[in-house]
Design a protein around this nucleic acid. Structure first.
Lengths: 234, 234
DNA sequence: TCAATATTTAATGTATACATTATTTTTTAA
DNA sequence: TTAAAAAATAATGTATACATTAAATATTGA
């Protein structure tokens, strides 16, 4: 599960601030840093082999991104995600991702969607089905993510893409941890197929409705798991 | 037009970084700093009477917020807004604000909306109508903003509120500049009244549809002005 | 003259020193 | 012993010094 905004812009060597940002973000997303953990600027700087300055600058960005909370004399807190946080995040994704689907379908109606893009959607959907057949939930989640990201790439709205990725990032750990508790997500493959068809037909309203429904199911799935298994903060 | 996130959290004296952030943000939003203008960190630091460090930290946040672009050896660029930018921003707001309306209506259905909140919506709507009657577009815009913000306050989703405010911020100057070119926004009062009714009835779906329609009109209004008057970048 | 190269300049990126302040510890007095 | 006050501590907030590097300028050789 990448979830790294692989824009890799400028591609030349990254500044220490950028390095610190990338490393810290990765460690948060892959759970090397546990939720609730707190660390001092100084400690982080030592660990990363750099001075406090770039660490601070990276942390400011991570805080804006909603991944950490800077607690002035307590340290950098890796923000845990509560059920309420999750609900907030999904209410945003439930609005934004269907909008992305609509935009893609509308572009498609005007013949502005490349074949390869549609094929990528179909490929990732097939990957999901295959992973499901093999009972490999981790692979399934990766393919699911790939589908959703591909859709975002296609909608030609950088801001929309960025903001959705931001909230995916916040929800990432929770999705990962609840994965084993999910009942087999057999419907999701169907939803994706239906969405791709709506896009091909260029029916924006339909694409929106299908994706909204799809996301809403995802929300309730996740929230039920968090409540039933008493995973109050992840 | 405040548009400042008046959370005023911690309320104790603000750090220089926070001061710099607040001042710079205000100057960008109120157009003291013109779009396209570029300034050096050093210059800004001198102007604000502080060292580069807090200015840098503030700028990092403003860049994340989409208001400036830090161009390594060129300076801090006040980002101009193009028609395409505007379209991106409104496609996001067209998804998020109706979602906020839905959430408020659903809370209302469960009797969780305070009377004063509904009254605030009605008050700001009345203010809009009054401003319109007086041909005072500036007052109208302020009341309109107040209505939209009040709605966001009511939806009990801090993230949703923050992210909508972020994009309002990006669009702020453009809305302000196009104000005199707008045809009298007589419909908007009606839309707001209809929305408040839907909320009172607790009809989330209706509230969503009304607000989506409302925002979509706003989008086309603004984009047409930008195109017709050749305001390519604001 | 002009293009290629070397030099200088000026701005940022980064480290570090210092100032400030919340917290903790120690001291003191009842 | 314990609560209040004082001192010490430790972390951040901020300024500044230095390193790096892109851009601008000057130099050189054809």
């Amino acid at each position: 599960m990448s979830l790294t905004n692989t824009t890799n812009e400028s591609s030349c060597k990254a500044s220490r601030t950028q390095q610190a940002y990338a490393i810290l973000r990765e460690r948060i997303l892959d759970n090397s840093f546990k939720a609730g953990e707190q660390m001092l600027e100084t400690t982080l700087a030592e660990n990363l082999g750099m001075s406090r300055t770039p660490v601070r600058e990276a942390c400011i960005q991570l805080e804006r991104e909603g991944l950490i909370k800077i607690n002035p004399r307590k340290g950098i807190l890796i923000k845990p995600i509560s059920a309420h946080d999750m609900s907030e995040i999904y209410d945003i994704l439930c609005a934004l991702e269907p909008q992305a689907a609509r935009l893609v379908a509308e572009k498609s109606a005007q013949g502005q969607i490349a074949c390869e893009s549609l094929e990528r959607l179909e490929k990732t959907t097939a990957d999901m089905a295959a992973a499901l057949a093999n009972d490999n939930l981790h692979e399934w989640a990766m393919a699911d993510e790939a589908f959703h990201f591909a859709l975002l790439e296609m909608c030609d709205n950088q801001r929309l893409k960025d903001v959705v990725l931001q909230f995916w990032g916040q929800a990432h750990r929770a999705r990962f941890f609840t994965l084993p508790y999910r009942k087999k997500p057999v419907d999701s493959t169907k939803d994706h197929i239906a969405l791709v068809n709506a896009i091909k037909q260029g029916d924006g309203e339909l694409a929106f409705r299908i994706h909204a429904e799809h996301r809403l199911k995802g929300k309730y799935n996740l929230l039920n798991i968090i409540k039933n298994f008493d995973l109050e903060s992840l």
